[in-house]
Design a protein around this nucleic acid. Structure first.
Length: 643
RNA sequence: GCUCUGGUAGCUCAGUGGUAGAGCGCUUCCUUGGUAAGGAAGAGGUCGCGGGUUCGAUCCCCGCCCAGAGCUCCA
C-alpha cells in the first residue's frame, strides 16, 4: 500500500487492530509520540511481530506493534537487563580492567559476571551500587549499533570472554553492540531508552560463578541485583527476602528445637529432635492412613543391598559416584540403598502375578542414602540420608490413565490438607529415549488426556521426560510464593524389562507390566523442611509439636491447671504445663515457641471451672471458656486438620 | 567438587600474640506474680581438628573437617 505523497510511508498495526501510517524509517518511539504524549513518556520498548525491541529501532512496514510500558511483564525483563548494563558500567568505572561476562535478567532481578582478580568485597559492592546512581543520573541513552565481525573483534580485542562469545555468533546472525555512556557491550538487547529510566534497584550479593556455567572453566565474580519500576515493588521484594530469611527452616529448626545436623554425626545427616519427631510422626501417620485408603500396600525393605541388585538395575554404572562406597563382608559387596525401586521390584517378582492382581501398589517410607556433593547440602532440604514417601505401582498399559487419575486425586488431597497451591507439568519424550517411541508417545498422550480431563492447566515440558518414560510433576507454591517439587509420577518402561516384571494376561501369556515410580511429598526431610518455611514455624494445631501450654497464674492454681492438662491429654492433645517464672515470661515463651494455644488458669478460672484461652498471635484478645468446650473445640480443630 | 566468607559457653555474638567476655538459656535462692523478659547468686569454654612459626598461638601460616552465599550437580 502506498500513499500519494512524496515521502514513502509504512503502515503498522496496533493490538486493538488499528492501523497507522508512519513515515519510512519511523521508530517505535515515533509511533508512541504519534499516539499521544503520555504514551511517548511511558513507553520503554515495543514488541514488533512478537519480538521485544528497542524503542529507537525503525519499524518495518506491515509490522504488528505493541508498545510496552511498565505495566507489561516483558518490560520488567528489559528494565532488569538494562540494570545489568548499568551495573557493568559502574563496575568498569571502578575497576577498569574488569573482564565482562554475561549480564542477563533473571526471575527476580539480574546479575552480571565479571572477570576480576579478586572477589568483590561488600564495601566494593556498596560503592558499585552508589556508582550506579551516578550512571542513572547521567541518563545515558542506550545506543544500539550493528557492527561487522571485524569491528566487533576490534572493539573487544582486550576482552577474551566477549571474543569467545563473538566466535559463537553465526555468520547469518546480526552482531550488535550497545553503548550507554562510557560502557560498550556485545549484546543482543533490547534495552530501555536510557539509563535514567532505572529507578528502583538494589545490589543483593556477590559470589563466584563459573564462566559459561561450566565447572571446568574459570570462576568469575557474579554480582546479583534486582530492579523494579516502582519503589513499592522493590520494597515488597526486599521484604519478601527478609521474610524468607526469618522463615529459614535451619534457623527455625534450631529455635524450635526440631532438628540438628552435627559435625560428629556427619554432613547431610539429620537428627530429628523430639519436637521435629512429633511433626514427622503426625505427617507420616496421616500419609500412611491416606495410602491405605487409596489401595496401597505398605512394604519394608533393608537400608542396604548387595551390589548385584544395582548391577541389574543399571544404577551402578551410571550413578556409582552418587552412592556411598561399597562395604565388603564375607566376599560380598553391599551398598547403602540410593533408592527403593529395585527392592520393590524384587517383591513384585517374588511370585507369578495375574492381570487380576493389577494394579499392585507398594508404598514405603524408605530411607535412602546418596553421597551428595558437599557444596550442595542444605539443611533438611538437601541431605545424604532421607526418607522418601516412595511407591511403585505395577499396572497394565491399559491402566495408565485410570491410575494417574487416582494419583492426582491423592496428591490433590494431601497437598490441600497442608494448604499448598500447586500446578502440574507434563514431560514428554526426549531424543535419548529408549524403546518404542510410539509406546512412549501414546503414554504421554494418555497422560495429557488425563490432565485435560481434570481441567488442569498443565505446563508442557517437551522432551523433558526421562529416557525410560514420561512423567507428571506437581509443583507446589508455598506461603511466600516460592515453588517446590511436590511430587512426581514417573512412568517406566525400562525397569520392567531389566527386572523381568511380568504378569500373566487373560490370554494366559506373559506380558510386561508398566511401572509408575511416584512420590507425593518427596522425602520427609525435604517436605518437613519446606513445611517449616511454609508455616514460618507456626504449625497448624494438628501438626504443632506442642498444641497447648497451660499456664497457672501462680503456684496456688497449679492443681487446677494440672486437672486441665489431664483433661486435654485424655483426648490425645499434646499439652505442657509451664510453671516457671512470671506469667508474662511464660506467655512470651509460648509465643516465641509458636505454641498454638495458651490456657491460663488463675483464681477466676479455677473457681468457675473455666479457662482463659489465648491463641497464638492474638495478643490480648483472649476468651474465657468452659473447660469441656475448650477440649472439644481443640479436638475438633485437630480432627478437621484446620489450617 | 569449585570460589569466597566464617567456626569463641546450650543459643546469638564481642574480643585478644601473654591460656577469655556479654546477653539470653540452665541450676539454686528470693519473689506468688493476671497477659511478650521480677530480682540475686552460681555452674558452664581443649576459642572446630591436626601440624607449623614463636619463649608463648584462640589470635599469624599450612592442611583437614563443618557451616554459609553462589556456581555446578540432583537417578
Amino acid at each position: 500500500m502506498s500513499t500519494p505523497t512524496d515521502r514513502p510511508s509504512i503502515c503498522v498495526s496496533l493490538p486493538d487492530g488499528r492501523e497507522l501510517a508512519l513515515p519510512e524509517g519511523a521508530t517505535a518511539a515515533d509511533l508512541a509520540a504519534k499516539i499521544g504524549p503520555g504514551l511517548a513518556r511511558a513507553a520503554l520498548a515495543a514488541t514488533v511481530d512478537g519480538e521485544v525491541r528497542d524503542l529507537a529501532r525503525p519499524l518495518p512496514d506491515g509490522a504488528e506493534v505493541r508498545l510496552l510500558t511498565e505495566r507489561d511483564p516483558e518490560a520488567l525483563g528489559v528494565l532488569r537487563h538494562s540494570a545489568a548494563h548499568v551495573l557493568a558500567t559502574a563496575v568498569r568505572e571502578l575497576v577498569p580492567t574488569a573482564g565482562i561476562g554475561f549480564g542477563p535478567a533473571i526471575d527476580d532481578g539480574f546479575y552480571y559476571d565479571f572477570d576480576v582478580p579478586e572477589p568483590f568485597t561488600p564495601e566494593q559492592v556498596a560503592a558499585i551500587e552508589e556508582r550506579m546512581a551516578a550512571v542513572i543520573e547521567a541518563d545515558h541513552p542506550f545506543e544500539r549499533q550493528v557492527v561487522s565481525r571485524q569491528e566487533a573483534c576490534d572493539l573487544f580485542s582486550d576482552d577474551p570472554l566477549k571474543l569467545e562469545r563473538l566466535g559463537e555468533i553465526g555468520d547469518d546472525e546480526e552482531i550488535t553492540v550497545y553503548r550507554d555512556g562510557p560502557f560498550l557491550d556485545l549484546c543482543r538487547g533490547p534495552h530501555v531508552p536510557s539509563t535514567g529510566r532505572l529507578g528502583h534497584y538494589r545490589l543483593l550479593s556477590a559470589a563466584g560463578a563459573y564462566w559459561r556455567g561450566d565447572e571446568r572453566r574459570r570462576m568469575l565474580q557474579r554480582i546479583y541485583g534486582t530492579a523494579f519500576f516502582r519503589a513499592k515493588d522493590l520494597r515488597a521484594h526486599l521484604h519478601r527476602l527478609e521474610e524468607a530469611k526469618k522463615r529459614d527452616h535451619r534457623v527455625l529448626g534450631k529455635r524450635l528445637d526440631l532438628f540438628s545436623v552435627q559435625e560428629e554425626v556427619g554432613a547431610g545427616l539429620v537428627l530429628w529432635h523430639p519436637h521435629g519427631g512429633r511433626v514427622r510422626r503426625i505427617v507420616e501417620d496421616f500419609l500412611r492412613e491416606s495410602l491405605v485408603a487409596h489401595g496401597y500396600e505398605l512394604v519394608y525393605t533393608p537400608h542396604l543391598a548387595s551390589e548385584e541388585l544395582y548391577r541389574i538395575s543399571g544404577h551402578l554404572d551410571v550413578f556409582a559416584e552418587d552412592m556411598f562406597p561399597a562395604m565388603e563382608s564375607g566376599g560380598d559387596r553391599f551398598r547403602m540403598k540410593p533408592m527403593n525401586c529395585p527392592h520393590h521390584f524384587m517383591i513384585y517378582r517374588s511370585q507369578v502375578r495375574s492381570y487380576r492382581d493389577l494394579p499392585l501398589r507398594f508404598a514405603e517410607l524408605g530411607t535412602c542414602y546418596r553421597y551428595e556433593r558437599s557444596g550442595t547440602l542444605h539443611g533438611m532440604l538437601r541431605v545424604r540420608s532421607f526418607t522418601q514417601d516412595d511407591a511403585h505401582i505395577f499396572i497394565r498399559e491399559d491402566q495408565i490413565a485410570e491410575e494417574y487419575q487416582r494419583l492426582l486425586d491423592l496428591g490433590d488431597h494431601l497437598l490441600g490438607v497442608f494448604g499448598y497451591e500447586y500446578r502440574v507439568a507434563l514431560s514428554t519424550r526426549p531424543e535419548k529415549a529408549i524403546g518404542d517411541a510410539a509406546v512412549y508417545d501414546a503414554a504421554s498422550d494418555r497422560l495429557a488426556g488425563v490432565l485435560r480431563e481434570r481441567g488442569l492447566d498443565y505446563e508442557l515440558d517437551e522432551g523433558g521426560g526421562a529416557f525410560y518414560g514420561p512423567k507428571v510433576d506437581i509443583l507446589v507454591t508455598d506461603a511466600l510464593g516460592r515453588e517446590w517439587q511436590g511430587g512426581t509420577f514417573q512412568l517406566d518402561f525400562l525397569m520392567p524389562e531389566r527386572f523381568g516384571l511380568e504378569y500373566v494376561g487373560r490370554d494366559n501369556r506373559r506380558h510386561q507390566v508398566v511401572v509408575v515410580h511416584r512420590t507425593l511429598l518427596g522425602s520427609m526431610e525435604r517436605f518437613i523442611g519446606g513445611l517449616i518455611e511454609h508455616y514460618g514455624g507456626a504449625f497448624p494445631l494438628w501438626l504443632a509439636p506442642v498444641q497447648v501450654r497451660v499456664l497457672p497464674v501462680s503456684e496456688q492454681w497449679e492443681g487446677s491447671a494440672a486437672e486441665l492438662v489431664a483433661q486435654l491429654s485424655a483426648v490425645g492433645l499434646r499439652v505442657e504445663l509451664d510453671q516457671r517464672d512470671t506469667l508474662g515470661y511464660r506467655i512470651r515463651a509460648a509465643e516465641t515457641m509458636k505454641v498454638p494455644y495458651m490456657a491460663i488458669v488463675g483464681e477466676r478460672e479455677a473457681e468457675a471451672g473455666t479457662v482463659a484461652v489465648r491463641a497464638r498471635g492474638a495478643r490480648r484478645k483472649q476468651v474465657a471458656m468452659e473447660r469441656g468446650e475448650f477440649v472439644s473445640r481443640l479436638a475438633d480443630e485437630v480432627e478437621r486438620r484446620v489450617l
